[in-house]
Design a protein around this nucleic acid. Sequence first.
DNA 1: ATAATTAATCGTAATATTGCAATGCATTAT
DNA 2: ATAATGCATTGCAATATTACGATTAATTAT
Lengths: 109, 109
Amino acid sequence: MGLTKSEIFTDEQNQLSTLLKAIAHPARIAILQRIIISNTCICGDLVGELGLAQATISQHLKELKTAGIIQGTIEGVSVCYCINPKTWKLLEDQLGAFLGSYKGETSCC
Amino acid sequence: MGLTKSEIFTDEQNQLSTLLKAIAHPARIAILQRIIISNTCICGDLVGELGLAQATISQHLKELKTAGIIQGTIEGVSVCYCINPKTWKLLEDQLGAFLGSYKGETSCC
DNA sequence: ATAATTAATCGTAATATTGCAATGCATTAT
DNA sequence: ATAATGCATTGCAATATTACGATTAATTAT
């Protein structure tokens, strides 16, 4: 097995879990934080700053791009990445609804 | 390898990614939603409602418990699970800070 | 005491993820 | 044209995840 049975869940559950999985890695969180701070895009800077090999960074960037969380455009010889505002908002909304649905007044156990 | 190099990231980055990973699965999202709806705790109900085997559900519950997101107490022959308010709040705060740090005014690419 | 019920755990198979060296592919500089 | 630079892709090894049948452990009912 090792294969998630996504067909038994709702589209919303699958979509949210996909987005969450994309950001559920310290390297990808670090990458996103770095992109957000220097709002102006970056790329190979990450390789120098995080302690990971270039191939590894590139792979993490690809995952974030595939999930639609970031977008990249070729800028001469380097590539410029930035947040995809649409997906970011979607994540905020979906996650806000999910987390906000719990009102922790009455804990039972 | 297949082993995350967590030593090169901050505690906050590691903690947030651990929490996110715990909820980044459609089954675990479904479980949490079910727990939240029937605020009163459940357990084996999940096995009937989600289309997963008992062993699988139990494993997902264990992961959520290990991450501190839910807590369970033995209630006679069955086990009662509910949200751990403390961790839930921590997740909301950490995630809110992270997602909120992006102000999507100026997209660059 | 025995049976039934509930859930955790073990063992196993299939698949996914993480990380990197090596290589390939553009684009810019010489 | 050639070299250099920046990134993506490929191939590979190690580890993690997902799922489930079978078993076990504990509690309740008979």
